[in-house]
């Protein structure tokens, strides 16, 4: 095997089918390149062909009655400036994006690249998970749609097979009285840094009662995960300080972080409690509770 990044081809297919055809013909040795801000840092050795998607027009944000759709090739700068994403609860996508990397990197980095790189610490997936996002995947057989949480299989592993790639992210419409929040902890809260831990929450209320609750966290397992226990504790309740605390502690209990150069597993677990608590409080505050 080569010990240097040396793909011998660069292709720019004109439609979805041609893209899958190229990807499949390289039997796992072709790689999509979007912004390149992840790929060119890691420079994988097992790549013979790079596939650029710029001719597929996947750079869009559309606002419809059923919700919002975002093309996989949409740059992060478009997301952080999007009017359609400035309203509750979608605005956590803008907020998470503004906490991600730097303005310079966000000029080229894409939402598809952020999801498909499938690192445990990426920022948009937890936010997308509490927004019940689905991803649309295209392959030789056509397209399929799956919940974003099911897209990840492990560190840097996704459900994509050789011929498949991501074309779109779909977020549903939410009832009124829905609030969400995204929280990120990093070493230097003001500078470039990936998350030690991140967390997102969404609460939808009926009157004063929590009708639906979603809590997701990142950098605490091989993939971003939901806290089902926190959701059970919150559902059907009238929120108070005690319930929020219990939910945050339940989330921390479900986190299975590791020790690494950024932080210890113990510290991460404690910080999950803090971030989930903040995320729930902010979600509630954002619908006037």
């Amino acid at each position: 095997m080569r010990n240097i990044f040396r793909p011998s081809e660069f292709r720019r297919p004109k439609d979805l089918h041609e893209t899958s055809w190229i990807l499949s013909s390289f039997e796992g040795r072709a790689r999509v390149v979007a912004g390149g801000t992840e790929l060119l840092v890691h420079k994988p050795l097992d790549v013979d062909c790079l596939v650029g998607l710029s001719k597929l027009d996947l750079d869009y944000i559309r606002n419809g009655r059923a919700g919002i759709t975002i093309g996989a090739g949409t740059t992060l700068v478009k997301i952080e400036e999007s009017e359609a994403l400035s309203v509750e609860p979608y605005r956590i996508l803008r907020e998470a994006t503004r906490l991600l990397a730097t303005p310079t990197i966000r000029n080229t980095a894409t939402i598809g690249g952020n999801i498909c790189n499938a690192s445990p610490a990426v920022d948009l997936p937890p936010a997308l998970m509490v927004l019940d996002a689905k991803v649309i995947i295209s392959g030789l057989e056509g397209t399929r749609e799956i919940p974003i949480a099911d897209f990840f299989e492990g560190v840097k592993k996704t459900v994509l097979s050789d011929d498949e790639f991501m074309v779109e992210v779909k977020i549903p419409a939410f009832p009124e009285n829905t609030g969400a929040s995204f929280q990120k902890l990093r070493h230097h809260q003001t500078s470039i840094d990936i998350a030690i831990v991140n967390a997102a929450a969404r609460l939808s209320f009926a009157g004063d009662t929590v009708k639906e609750a979603k809590v997701a966290m990142g950098s605490v397992a091989a993939t971003p995960i939901y806290s089902k226990k926190a959701e059970e504790i919150l559902k059907g309740k009238i929120l108070d300080v005690d319930i929020v605390k219990r939910a945050a502690e339940a989330a921390s209990g479900e986190a299975k972080p590791i020790d690494d150069i950024r932080a210890s597993a113990g510290y991460r677990k404690r910080m999950v409690t803090v971030l989930v608590e903040r995320a729930l409080e902010e979600s509630a505050r954002r619908c006037g509770k």
């Binding site: 720019r12 390149v33 390149g36 060119l40 790079l50 650029g52 710029s54 310079t104 000029n107 080229t108």
Partner: peptide, 17 residues
């Protein structure tokens, strides 16, 4: 690149066509 600041070390020139 088209008026926006980008990192040329992380940009494939093939994509600047």
């Amino acid at each position: 690149l088209n008026g926006k600041a980008v990192l040329s070390c992380l940009t494939l020139v093939a994509q600047t066509d």
